[in-house]
Structure formats: C-alpha cells, structure tokens
Simulated assay, not measured.
Amino acid sequence: MSAIPSATGGIARLACARLADSGKDTAALLSKAGLTLNDFRDPAVRLAVTTQIKILELAAKELKDDILGFRLARGFDLRQIGLVYYVMASCENVADALRAAERYSRIMNEGVRLRFDMEGHTSTIALEYVGVDRRGERQQIEFWIVTLVRICRQVTEGRLVPSRLQVRHLRAGMPPEFRTFFGRDVEFGADGDVISFPVPVALLPLVGRDGYLHDLLRRYADEALIRKAPHGATVRSRVEKTLTTLLPHGRGVAKEVARQMGLSTRTLSRKLGEEKTSFVEILDQLRAALAKRYLEEEQLPVSEVAWLLGYRELSSLTHAFKRWTGMTPRQFRSKGKATRYCAVT
C-alpha cells in the first residue's frame, strides 16, 4: 500500500459532473484541491482519498447541497462502477456478491475497507477508514452506504430494508430523504459505519444473474489461451475454462474448481498428473496469459486487473508479473503502447 491511500476517484468525478451540469466552475474547485482539470479527466489517474473527500465537501458547499453524497449515489447508473458490478451481479447470492465487493475494496480504494460478516442472526457490512481521518467526513461514506444498499436491492429485485444503519458522523437531524430511501432511521454518532441485515437476506439468490461478465471474460480467455499451445479437450482445458469465471470472485482454488467439474480434489489432482501438469501450474500460467491480455485494455486500471485475476493485493500481481516477464504491469503496458505506436507510424 502507498503511504497516501488512493482511490479510483469515481465519486469525485460524479460530483464534478454534477457541478458542470449546474454551470459551476469545475476547474476553480479542483484547483482548491490541488488538481488540474486535465489530470482529473484522465480515468487512469488515481486520487488521494483525502483529495476525493475534499472535492466532495467543496462540491457540496458550492452546490449548497448538504446531502450531495447521498444524491450522487441515488442517481448514478450502478454499471458505472465497472466490472465489479458485473461480478457482483453474476454471483449466486447476496453474501457472495458482498464478499466480491469486500475483496474489490481492498485493491481499488486503499483508504476505505469493506468487511462483510455473518454471525448469529445478523449479517453486517462494515466500512472502515484506513490511513484517513474519518472525523467529520460525511459525503463519501454516505455515498458508499447508499450504493451498497442499492446494489443489494437491484440484484435481488426487492426493496430490502436494513435492520439497522449506523454511521460515525453527526447530523443535526434526520434528512427525510434518508428515511424514505432506507425505510428506517439512520443512527448518527455511532461507534462504526455499519449496515445490518437479517442473515436470510444475505442468503437470498440473485435474480436474473447478469451474463455480461461471463461473456466478456470468456472472450478475453479465448484470446489469451489461443496464443498458448492448444491443449484440446483435456482436463487442463476444462480447468482453465472453469478458472476464468471463478478468478474475479476470488474462488480460483482447486477445491472449488473440482466441485464445479463434478470431481473430488484428489481425483482432479490425479487426472492432471496424468497430463503431466498440476493445478498450481495451470493457475499460474493462466494468470500470466490473462494478465497480458487484460493489460492490452488501456481502460482497465492495473489494480482492477489484479482483482480480476483473484488477487487480494496489487503487490501480489506486481511480484508475479515480474516473475513472468521481468517487468512490472505498468512497464509491460507502456512497452506495448510504444510498440503499437511504432507500428502505426
């Protein structure tokens, strides 16, 4: 993790889009946060989490909207979150979707950690700030809470009402919009930022699971694997196909692959041994091939590539990629850009 926690900056960009729509001077506001308009427009540029918080607070003041984070989260298309939405929407149930979001938050937002737990009769989604002062911050945390509730409702096609909602910051009163949206009051000034649901809610199956992610990753995998020596209809090829859709969910382990193939872990290991390979070898080689393919997509941040490959930390991808190629992912991407530029010119 870097010394200064960073994030993709998506929430800040939504706030600035709202400013622009209102005819406000976005460049002037960004300069107060130490940013230029050109840098801010580049989706590949990550923002310090403290900078994002400052932009949101400045935008709320400029727009005279004390619940800007809430309104932004209510109004944007959830698909704008990116591939994480499709991973969540292709999970089996709410709990699996939230576990995917938990792993995503570890890589994509260094300053905010999502933690999902099921204990007793209650399932909880807790948000924790890391290396960032939580005191007084309201807009970003309210954006997160609303977004998470919206996702749970959208993937189940039901108006789920939390059994309890707690946030650390204070408000002078309960905004009526909060009560209307959440279906209950929010407890301000609590010891933590927590959304609670009864456990049965977490076990709800997802309705109309979105196949976009499966189709996209299948295409990426086909393109990546065709560059390798073809294996034909082998146990190895079945493992590779299964792993492709399990990795983004953080479930690319031998036990789960074997289960989905209708085998025991021991039988899978034996069959792969007959083909002179192993699960660990296949996983490593598949990740290497997919990493190179994903890095060709310039709109995919390197951190999101790490997440798609099933890693919990960006550093894990960096170390593995150096072992595979002798370069970091960013160096590999830059080299690819230069090669393509020379080919064109």
Results as ranks from 00 to 15, higher is better:
296 E>D: 10
27 A>H: 09
108 M>Y: 00
292 K>C: 12
215 D>N: 15
173 G>Y: 15
147 T>W: 00
80 Q>D: 14
171 R>D: 02
79 R>S: 14
75 G>N: 15
15 A>W: 10
244 T>I: 09
123 S>Q: 08
156 T>L: 04
222 D>S: 14
165 L>G: 01
205 P>T: 08
119 E>Q: 14
62 E>D: 13
159 R>D: 15
36 T>Y: 02
58 L>M: 11
75 G>K: 08
86 Y>S: 10
134 R>D: 14
315 S>R: 13
341 Y>W: 12
240 E>H: 05
111 G>Y: 06
56 L>W: 04
258 A>L: 04
291 A>L: 06
19 L>D: 04
174 M>V: 02
285 Q>K: 14
325 T>Q: 05
44 A>I: 10
292 K>I: 06
124 T>P: 03
128 E>K: 12
218 R>C: 02
55 I>R: 01
332 F>V: 01
224 A>Q: 04
243 L>V: 05
141 I>S: 02
252 G>S: 03
17 A>N: 15
122 T>S: 06
24 K>F: 04
234 T>F: 10
17 A>C: 09
42 D>R: 07
97 A>H: 13
194 V>A: 00
146 V>I: 13
275 E>T: 07
21 D>C: 07
85 Y>V: 03
178 F>K: 03
290 L>S: 01
193 D>M: 02
14 L>Y: 07
61 K>M: 11
256 E>V: 14
10 G>N: 13
197 F>T: 08
84 V>D: 14
340 R>M: 12
184 R>P: 01
165 L>R: 01
138 R>H: 13
256 E>M: 11
276 K>N: 14
37 L>T: 09
132 V>R: 00
153 R>N: 12
305 V>H: 00
184 R>E: 08
123 S>P: 00
74 R>E: 15
226 I>M: 11
190 A>M: 08
271 K>G: 02
341 Y>F: 10
249 H>L: 06
286 L>Y: 11
169 H>L: 03
330 R>P: 02
